[in-house]
């Protein structure tokens, strides 16, 4: 934790309700520059909704979100979204654009076309061959597609990287490799990263800080180390118990 302190992102009493249902209930939270935060919870716990309030894919019903000190509600929308890299659960590559066109879309929208060298560099960062650039998305495997998704999120040189279940649809090997890769990119570019996942093991292995959500509230806010040592309360410990039991069973089997 050698990064400079001071929150890059702050939630103040953020609430989002759909009718009587509170998807996010009064969340207040500060995230410091350089943190890699995992937002963990079951389906319907509100973790994706909370993430989307940052770039206003979801508008909060009440409360404010501050990004680099400014209220996102008053930031011009396209400009805000270009400053925040976003990796989608559904990957969301544009099927009618080639890999390089997909990667270059954010700078293109900003009116600063991406150089061919820079596309090559980004492909290299996500461990894709340079000749992939002319492929269409439907010619790629799922893992390759999400690598392109990550490269696209990084192309605008964002300070903040949001990832919504980024590896959920990938096979375990790809999932592991891509997770490690993202973690290294996070460090290399001094990013602040928030990753939504329902997989506690993934959160423990990749993040510096794990937030557990349940029923729209944050019920635990701990380091992975502290969670493994029993902190965070009943719900968080229930989630930690599963990978721990699996790990112990595997350890016994290999003895």
């Amino acid at each position: 934790m050698t990064h400079s302190a001071g929150p890059v992102l702050e939630f103040r009493d953020v609430r989002k309700n759909y009718g009587a249902l509170d998807a996010v209930a009064d969340v207040s939270l500060a995230i410091a520059t350089g943190e890699f935060v995992a937002l963990v919870g079951a389906s319907g716990s509100g973790k994706s909704t909370l993430l989307k309030t940052v770039n206003r894919l979801v508008e909060p019903s009440a409360g404010t979100v501050l990004f680099e000190g400014l209220d996102v509600a008053t930031s011009p929308l396209p400009a805000l979204r270009r400053r925040v890299g976003y990796v989608f659960q559904s990957i969301g590559l544009f099927p009618h654009m080639s890999v390089s066109e997909n990667i270059a879309i954010v700078p293109r929208l900003a009116g600063e076309p991406l150089s061919s060298d820079r596309v090559g560099e980004l492909l290299e960062l996500v461990e894709l061959e340079a000749e992939m650039r002319s492929r269409m998305p439907d010619e790629l495997s799922g893992g390759q597609r999400q690598r392109v998704g990550v490269a696209r999120a990084l192309a605008g040189e964002p300070h903040l990287l949001l990832m919504d279940e980024p590896f959920g649809a990938l096979d375990p090997l790809t999932r592991n490799a891509l997770g490690e890769r993202v973690r290294r990119l996070h460090k290399r570019f001094d990013l602040t990263t928030i990753m939504v996942t329902h997989d506690m093991a993934e959160a423990l292995l990749l993040a510096d800080r794990v937030l557990v959500m349940d029923g729209g509230r944050i019920v635990a806010d701990e380091t992975p180390q502290a969670l493994l040592e029993g902190a965070g309360g009943r719900i968080a410990q229930g989630m930690v118990a599963v990978p721990r039991a699996q790990a112990e069973k595997l350890a016994r089997m290999s003895r």
Binding site: R81, Y86, L109
Partner: peptide
């Protein structure tokens, strides 16, 4: 595809 439309919004279109 709603995922593609969300991505279009998400990249700042």
């Amino acid at each position: 595809d709603p995922g593609v439309l969300e991505a279009a919004d998400g990249v700042g279109m």
